[in-house]
Structures are given as C-alpha cells and as structure tokens.
Design a protein around this nucleic acid. Structure first.
Length: 926
RNA sequence: GCGAAAGUGGCGGAAUUGGUAUACGCACUGGACUUAGAAUCCAGCGGGGCAACCCAUGGGGGUUCAACUCCCCCCUUUCGCACCA
C-alpha cells in the first residue's frame, strides 16, 4: 500500500501563491487587448470590478481584514470562473493619525513607520493567497498619489467647491484636530471616542451641499445597496421642504426670517425663538437681565452642542405674525440651532413637542389650530392660488379651555381651526395654500433645507496631504500653480505631541512665495482629512501605468525646493515614466479617462458598515466632482455594496484592551490560509457579525483534509482506470461530447445509481451556488451543501469496492469531484487548485483558473419515486413513498393504506377534503 | 424620543416563493482502533413521555387546509439619528 500523503498546506499554498505572483495570473490591462493568452484576455468578456475597502497600514492584518478580503476574493475568483474580465486591486490608505501618534510615542518617522507596516501587511496579504493585481498597488501617502488630490483641490477651489470660512467646528482634544460632522458619533470622536468640543476656527470645506440633491436622488438608483445604508445616507442628508417667512419686528424696521415645515400651523404661533448665536440676538435685547442671561446661553452654546434642558430668555422685543397681525414675544432659546435653516423659528406649542415643552416652562400661550380629521369634508374650494370660502360654512368652534388643557401637543396633520380663511382645510391643503399666499404677498418663500453640512477637511495634523494654498499679504489666499505640484510633505519635522501641528512650526515649510506676485507668503499648514484619499482611490486603480509628474524637469519649482525634502516623487519602481517626465506639468491625468469609464463603477464593493455615512458619502460626492471636472463620465462609484459584519469574540469586538484578539498569522501558520478563509466564510453569512470560534476553525480544517483525502483516494483509482492518462477518454468523440456537454446517454447509463443521485444533487448545488454568488453571498450555505456532498461521496466509497467501478462510474465521479473543487475554489483556492491538478484537470485545461464554472450534466437519471409527507389536519402523521407525478386521488388512497394513517382514519368517508402539493405533501382534513 | 434591523437546539447557523422546522458545522455522549493518548472512523444528539403521542422558531392574538415565513399588539437586543423646527 502506498504511503498516504498528508495534507501539507504549507507547501501547497506556497506553490500556488508563487505561481500566481510570478505569472501575474490576476493582472489585467487598463483596457482589454485583442490578443492575450487564453483565459486572461478581456476581449469579448464582460468587465467586473471587485473591490474591498483598502486597509490603513496600522501594523498587522486583523481578522476583520481577513473576512473582508476573503469575501472579496471569493467573488473575484467566482466571476473569473464565470468568464468575466476581473479587476481586483489593492492598496494602502496610508495617511492618518496612528502613524503620527506612533511617531510621538516612539520618536519614529511616520513615513518609515508606515512603509514598514505596509511591507509587513503586504506579506500577510500575499500569504492569504488573494487574487489581486498587485501592479496597481496604491500608497496614498506617496506624493505620486496625493499630488493629484492637490490638483483636484486647486481645481475645486477655482470652481468654488473648496472654500475657507470661519465656523464653529468639532474639536477633538485627544486627536488634537478638527473633525467633520460625519466623524462625530454621539458627541464623540469616531476614532478615539473622546468628547468633542466646539471651536471657532478658520477651516477649509468642500462644498458637498452643492450635491445634496443629487446625492439624495441617486440613492434611488442604487438598487445594489443595502436599504439600511441608503436610509442612513438619506437621513444624514436630511432634506426637508418648508416655508421661510419674514416676521416684522414690532416698532422696528427690521425683520426676522424663520423657517418652518409646518406652514399649516402658522396661526398657532405664539412666540418666536431664535438661537443664542443669531446675529440679531443682541439687538433685540431690551433689559439688562435678558442681556446677562443671554451671555450665559451664548457661552454654553459655544462650547458644546449637548443640551440637557431647554432654556430661554424673553428679549423684550415682539414680532408681528404677518398672517393675523398678532404680536408675538421673541425669545432667545438654546434649543434653536444656528446652523440649520435661518437660526430662528416660529413656535407653535400646540403642535410641536419642543415648542410645547418650552411654552410650558415659560408659561407661554398654547393655541390649537389643528384638530383631528373629522369625516366632514371640507367645503372649501381651492382653485390654483385662490381660496374661496363657501357661504354656508359653519364655524368649527373650539372652546378655549379645550386648547389650554392639552396635555401634550397634537403632532399629526388634521383639519385647520382658528385659522381665518384657511380654517377647514386639511393640513396638506393648508401647507400649500398658506405657502402660496405667503409667496403672493411677498412675505415668504418655499425653501428646501438640508441637514447635510459642507465637509470640513482641514486637519491640524502632520501626516496628511498638504493643502496647496499660500497666504500672501497682497493677494490673500492663493492656490499653488498646478505645475508646481506636488507640494511634498516635509520630512524633517519634530513631534512633540503638544500644541499645533508640526507643520505650523516648521519655518522652512511655512515660508513661501506668492504664485501671483512673487512676494512673501505663508503656507497653509493644515492638511486634508484622510477621507479625501479614499474618496477617489477606486478611480486611480483603473490605470496601471503610473503617469508621474515630471521630477526636476521644471526648473522654477521654487515652491517645492523650499520644503527641502526629497523631491523624488518615488512611486514604486517600474513605472515607465520616461515619457511622462518629458511632458510638461499637468497635461497628464491621474488616471486614464477611458480606463476609468471602462471599469467604473465598481461592480461589487465590500467593507464595514461603519463607513455608511463617512467614506461612502464622501466617495459618492467626489466621483461627481471628478465627473464635473471632466476626469470621467460616471455618476456613482459603487454599483453594488456589501456591508460585512464585525468579527467578534466572546460577544464583543476584538480589541487589544479586551484581550480577545486572534492573530490571523498564528492561525495561518497552524492551519494554512485556506482554513482561515473557509472558516470566516462558513461561520456566518457576510452581513452578520461573525463569532470567532477556535474549535470551529478546526472543523473547517477537517473538511479541507477530507476533500484532499478523497481526491488522493481516487487519484489512485482514476489513474488505474485510465482517466488520468485519458486512454479511453482521449478519443475525440468522447472529448467532443464532454466539451459540448452532450454526454452519451448510453455511456452514462452504465454508471452507478448512487453516483447519478450524487450527480443530481451536485446539479442542485451548481444552481444554488450561482444564485448565491449573484448577490446574496451566503457562502455558508454553499459550503454546507458541499460538505454534505463530500460526506455522500465518502459514504459511496465505503459501500463500493473500487475494483467494481466501471469506466462510466469513473467518468461521472471525476466530473463530480472536479465540479466540487471548482465550486469551492473561490473560497479555498490553494487546495482546490492542487486537487484539480492531482486529478489531471478537466476536459479543456489542467488549470482550475481557466476551467470555467461547472456545467450541469444530465445523466438521464430521474428519481421515479418521491417521499410525500402526509398530514392530518395540518399535523405531520406519516410519510409515504410514491411514484413521482401521481395525481391527488392516487396519493390520497395510498396514504389511507399507510398504517399510521389508518389508525386515525378508518374509512375514506371520514375525509372531508385534502390538499395536495405535488410530489411533496398531502394534507388530509377530517 | 424617532428610525431601522434582528430574536430558531448547549453554540454558530439552515429553511431564498407560506408546504416534512432544527440542514451543515461546533460542543457533548457512547462505541471501534490503540499499552495509552492524539488523530481518524461509526452511532446518538430540541424538550417531555415506557409508549401512542404531546410541546417547541421571544410572548400574545389573527389570517390559512397549512405560518420561522403574512397581518396586529407587546417584550428584548443591536445599530443609526438625537432638539434639523
């Protein structure tokens, strides 16, 4: 007996990984070429762009990465089998705080730290055997990448899409920088969890609000996104339609503009409330007492957005309700936000919770103007702008005390009361009518407000993309000339971890010349939010050739020499930059427009749900900007989105502080990467959290060993029956049939029934896998069916002497084994590649990469009996075996012959009726 | 408070269209092999009952011949937003 080979995952994985990397198996062209080798040509193939969110090089790969990339790789490999031309790139999102914090802590250089981490992680990723096109690797902290970002910034600045303003911004003391609104979670910093405070600072913004409407409406076209994410973005954008109305201030010439979404309640307004930060606030104050109290409110509003209790001050001023002339007191109220709407509201306590609460506290009148819808139809005529009251309408009288005794506000829409000529209208009608009336008389206009704010991108940190702006005493803020890019991040900096950004203290960096007048100027020392890099990397990937800026070719690049750093823009090695260098400045593009248009949008994007309103919103915004700047013609970056759950252990997210971290490297060394990948796909469907289980990993390992062993078992056998050597099957006729999937029925008829049954099940798995891989991605169900099938093959093997097997058996068995290997290949590519090779490959190729997705093979075998569940009054009582496709009557009489059924139903006359689901179930009602 | 998702054995999870609930895996129990162990293989494995049967998909109602699946109410958990007028 031959010595049994054991499953040596180390050698197997090494062997295939080397092959993939050396042969660049997964590398694709920017645009498909005509005459490339079989299997990798993109011509006549449909493109498929598969992308996982690229990692921040924090040091080592963690389980979340493994899960993310295993999912992506499974999809990419599946699509290749299905005949797609697949772009599957990877890179590093390498600007960010950890590098700088490490620098402060260990006195290292952020760049070195980052590059070292990238090196480590690249080795780890390669050990996982992921099918990336490594030629497209991006390192965003490299100036060959971020210079384009600076270019975009300048072009956005010129279009007014990047601007600077003084504003109240979120400040994280621990990270020592400002944050965008999206990056504040529950009043805390998204990164470190520190409490956010408010600062008034000059900051750079991207005008994402210009795209609010498109960002919102395009959500409707993203059918491949989870509803959850779309809803989160929708809520974040927060569109609301309403009316802005001018209220004249009593005995003054000024007006106060308020915004409301409930114009129908305007007759119920009993006071106005304005934000403490409202520009008119101080002018309206009439008493010393109010002034003092307001100061306090202002002070509180300035440091925090948190609010415990509603507080306010009566200013002493009044405004006039333009609709009924009522004199309304004006309050300064802490719950009114300055940065939404107009910073002033009309308060209708009867119909708004907040106004109600405030009115109760300060004893302000509550006036009901909406009541429950009655069945009575309104008898008002609304024709265009005209509202005519019918003659015989009787007033709906509401008693005063009924209003005052309201225990809580009436929030729903209803029928208007106490609202002059609008009384009797429904809320919906009244909104329209009152808005029209306001517009007609010029006291108001319909407006749309968004909750979304512009994206604050200034960061007071070092390790980020420098903002290409200088401040000239004469010319003000001036962008660098495009040809002077990149503005490199200087490297000779010291990190104290205190006070301002290191850049702000670096004279050699700050000192600059004005690009317009040549005079003395100071450089902007803020860097860009690192979410900018990830907003467009998917587009950069589409172009392999690295078109770099000319290095040293532009003699007057004095701006760059000022920072006395290495001016070599040193992208990784083999860029054939000869032609690029000879060109002058930005005649080049960050990526080839044709390639971007060809590959984008990303067909499948995979990442954590935590980026639902940060990265995913910014990226959508950015591609629209790039489109409008003329770089590509694509509206949305990601066609389909899969948000995977977290990897948890003992019920909580893996983290150092909890001490429940599992290091992928340890597992790969112990079981091999196929096992680690398999477990992370098998233990839960991708969108759910994955509970890590060391014992479960062993189960996955066992399964792989079982596959390997059954292949070895049959390697011997299949060789003996000459399949491997193709003595019989090499006959052209047979080969032709196999290729065309037109098997000789007679030939297969000879095969074992057990094998044919297994084959039938295989056919089911092939179909089921295709549906799963087409969008639901519940790999766990595919894997479990494969496990079942492998178990059956073992069973078959147990009951069958190999020597009794015929050629037909061998052929069918090989088809089954090959198919199972191909189905599992996207999840465990190394061992499947190896096994496929051991068996001698398929009809067309010995390389599983190009074997194609398995075809359904009909053996002409149909099961002619089926198992039918017999229910009595809906309860399962028995099961019978019957010939397939029998009619209800036959099944019923068969059922009644069954012992267990007989016990319950002695005579057919007891049967009231029966319901029959063909070949499945009969329910007998008695 | 508002919005969304989820709740199935000891555990991870199946059941994609209403049609035999608990597939597959883990853990556990027993057995085989072994001096012994590991590994492997075989068998069992929702709860109750000797059994016939009964009870089980968070709880309670409903629709239906039939409900994990559809409808209503409630509970719990997770996530997002949180004075957005």
């Amino acid at each position: 007996m031959e010595q049994e080979k054991s499953y040596d995952f180390y050698s197997i994985e090494k062997k295939w990984q080397n092959k993939w990397y050396n042969e660049k198996t997964y590398s694709v062209e920017d645009l498909p070429l005509d005459n490339v080798n079989v299997g990798i040509s993109g011509k006549n193939k449909q493109k498929f762009y598969c992308l996982e969110m690229f990692p921040y090089p924090s040091g080592r790969i963690h389980m979340g990465h493994v899960r993310n990339y295993s999912i992506g790789d499974a999809i990419a490999r599946y699509k290749r089998l299905k005949g797609y031309y697949v772009l599957h790139p990877i890179g590093f999102d390498s600007f960010g705080l950890p590098a700088e914090n490490a620098a402060i802590k260990n006195n290292t250089n952020p760049k070195e730290w980052t590059l070292k981490n990238i090196e480590t992680m690249e080795v780890q990723l390669k050990k996982l055997g992921l099918s990336y096109d490594w030629d497209r690797k991006i390192i965003t902290s490299d100036s060959s990448y971020y210079k384009w970002e600076q270019l975009f910034f300048i072009q956005m600045y010129k279009k007014g899409l990047a601007y600077k303003k003084l504003s109240r911004v979120n400040w994280c003391e621990s990270c020592h920088t400002t944050l965008a609104n999206e990056q504040v979670e529950n009043g805390k910093c998204w990164r470190c969890g520190n409490e956010i405070t408010i600062k008034n600072m000059e900051q750079w913004f991207f005008k994402i609000t210009d795209y609010a409407e498109e960002l919102l409406s395009e959500l409707n076209n993203l059918s491949g996104w989870p509803d959850k994410v779309k809803l989160m973005q929708k809520n974040w954008i927060g569109k609301s339609e309403g009316l802005s109305v001018l209220f004249k201030i009593y005995a003054e010439q000024t007006h106060l503009e308020i915004f409301t979404t409930r114009p129908d309640t305007i007759f119920g307004a009993t006071y106005l409330a304005i934000s403490p930060l409202h520009p008119l606030a101080k002018d309206l104050l009439k008493t010393e007492d109010a002034k003092v109290k307001t100061e306090e409110l202002i002070r509180k509003s300035l440091i925090s957005k948190e609010l415990n209790e509603k507080e306010g001050v009566f200013t002493g001023s009044y405004a006039i309700n333009p609709f009924n002339g009522q004199k309304l007191p004006i309050y300064i109220a802490n719950f009114v936000l300055m940065d939404y709407g107009t910073g002033a509201i009309m308060s209708v306590p009867a119909h708004d919770e907040r106004d109600f609460e405030f009115a109760k506290k300060y004893n302000i009148e509550i006036k009901q103007v909406i009541k429950n819808k009655s069945n009575k139809k309104t008898s008002l005529n609304i024709k265009k702008d005209e509202i005519k009251r019918n003659e015989n309408e009787s007033d709906d009288k509401i008693k005063e005390d009924e209003i005052k005794e309201l225990k809580k506000p009436f929030l729903e829409g209803g029928i208007l009361i106490n609202s002059s000529i609008f009384t009797g209208l429904t809320s919906e009608e009244a909104k329209k009518a009152i808005s029209l009336e306001a517009e007609k008389t010029g006291i108001g206009k319909r407006v749309i407000n968004y909750r979304l704010k512009d994206w604050g991108i200034s960061r007071q940190r070092y390790w980020g993309c420098p903002i290409p702006i200088v401040y000239c005493k004469k010319c003000g803020a001036v962008p660098l000339r495009e040809e002077d890019l990149p503005l490199e991040l200087p490297e000779n900096v010291t990190f104290t971890g205190k006070g301002e950004s290191p850049l702000a203290k670096l004279e050699s960096f700050i000192d600059a010349r004005c690009p317009i007048c040549g005079g003395q100027a100071k450089r902007e020392t803020d860097t860009m939010d690192t979410f900018v890099e990830s907003s467009w990397y998917y587009a950069k990937y589409t172009t392999k050739s690295k078109s770099d800026l000319p290095v040293n070719s532009n003699g007057n690049s004095n701006l760059r020499s000022a920072n006395n750093c290495n001016s070599g823009s040193n992208s990784n090695s083999n860029s054939n930059s000869a032609s690029a260098v000879s060109q002058s400045s930005f005649k080049q593009y960050p990526f080839d427009k044709k390639a971007a248009n060809y590959w984008l949008p990303v067909d499948q994007y995979i990442g954590g749900v935590e980026h639902a309103v940060m990265h995913l919103l910014y990226a959508r915004f950015f591609i629209k900007v790039l489109r409008d700047l003329g770089y590509l013609n694509v509206n949305e970056p990601f066609k389909n989105l899969l948000t995977q759950g977290m990897v948890v252990k003992d019920g909580s997210k893996m983290s150092k502080s909890k001490g429940n971290v599992v290091d992928p490297d340890d597992l790969i060394n112990k079981y091999g990467s196929d096992t680690v990948r398999l477990f992370s796909l098998f233990a839960a469907p991708p969108e759910k959290d994955l509970e890590w289980n060391d014992k479960g990993v062993e189960g996955s390992y066992r399964f792989i060993v079982r596959i390997y062993k059954i292949i070895l078992l049959y390697e011997h056998y299949l060789t003996n029956t000459a399949i491997k050597e193709q003595k019989k099957f090499n006959e052209p006729k047979e080969f032709q049939k196999i290729r065309e999937n037109k098997e000789d029925e007679n030939f297969l008829k000879g095969a074992d029934i057990e094998l044919k049954e297994i084959n039938n099940e295989l056919n089911g798995i092939i179909k089921k896998s295709e549906t799963e891989m087409d969008g639901r991605f519940h790999f766990n169900t595919i894997i479990s069916s494969c496990m079942e099938l492998v178990n059956k093959i073992y069973e078959y093997d147990k009951n069958k002497n190999q020597n009794d097997l015929t050629e037909s058996d061998a052929y069918l068995l090989k088809h089954i084994l090959n198919s199972i290997l191909i189905i599992l290949y996207p999840f465990i590519p190394h061992v499947c590649s190896e096994c496929f090779e051991i068996l001698g490959g398929g009809a067309a190729t010995a390389n599983i990469e190009y074997a194609g997705w398995p075809k359904i093979m009909e053996t002409g075998y149909k099961i002619d009996t089926c198992n039918i569940a017999v229910q009595i009054n809906g309860k399962l009582r028995s099961q019978i075996t019957a010939n397939i496709d029998l009619e209800q009557q036959d099944i019923l009489s068969l059922s009644l012959k069954d012992d267990k059924i007989k016990k319950n139903i002695s005579d057919i006359s007891l049967v009231k009726k029966s319901i029959y689901i063909k070949n499945k179930l009969i329910n007998i009602i008695i």
